[in-house]
Amino acid sequence: MVINLRKLPDKKYIMPGNAACPGCPETMGLRYVKMALGDNVVLVIPAGCSSVIQGISPYSGINAPILNIVFAAAASAATGMKAAFETMGRDDVHVVVWAGDGGTGDIGFQALSGAAERDEDIIYICVDNEAYMNTGIQRSSLTPYGAWTTTTWKGKKEHKKNIPMILISHGVKYVATASVGYPTDFIEKLQRASKIKGFRYIHLLAPCPVGWRFDPALTAKVAQLAVETGLFPLYEYINGEFKLSPIAKRYKDPSKRRPIIEYLKLQGRYRHLLDKPEEIKKIEEYIENTWKLIETLEESFAPGKDRGKKIFDAL
């Protein structure tokens, strides 16, 4: 599937004059969601930047019907909306959760896990800016190792929680990773996900210029570098089949990856560890381990081989 940029809808899916910071990855991502899914969508948004980005009522800067909801309840509120549409014979409506990393991996995780286990027919997008940005850059379980936040002044001591893998373990039909640096890849994934019935999860990396401390002009570039350094592999898991996304395939080969330092040095949140080779080594090891896991999954869940699918079917 090749997306022709000129054919993408030119509607104002994000209303200009919203409250997002300059260079915001969330408004970027929200545009792609609607480009991919069209207007037959309702969004469920828990507390976070995207609740504020909408701006001041009676106006909203996101051009979609939205049920704003308390922090921990996004997946549940979406479950209910979908159930209601179904009872009204409206199977066509996509109910989409748009939640941050805190709303997904921390406070909203219980509801997310419940909805995934029940295979609710919703699309859950985690827009991952790797910290509580809306409250002022506090650490979440998805903040990566070494990153400065206002609650980890000397850098976080633990690695990032791997939510997509946890979702795969739930046995859901669709799990993918995406990056705002690669909009057409994200749009393609949304479109594929939209054709599947059941619980679908997309983990969208969303570099935040304010929280990651980089020039807002570089949001797309940082989002691409995360993939090019091998730090954030792009993949899709569909119904028991795992495959790397075309953009990410080449980074299986470590020699094709950009050095991680290129990614780190652009971001003020890593400034304190640039002169600590042992710290950078830990991040490099994390990348190695990530790819070992990817290889294992590729092998077990290779398309056609059915090995992974059989494992889940047997469970």
Binding site: L67, A77, G80, G114
Partner: peptide
């Protein structure tokens, strides 16, 4: 909908009601 908590139970029925059920 047999949810995993009361927080989710009320959120689920609230979501459903807001969509019209």
């Amino acid at each position: 909908v047999r949810v995993e908590s009361e927080h989710s139970a009320l959120a689920t029925v609230f979501g459903a009601a807001s969509a019209g059920a």
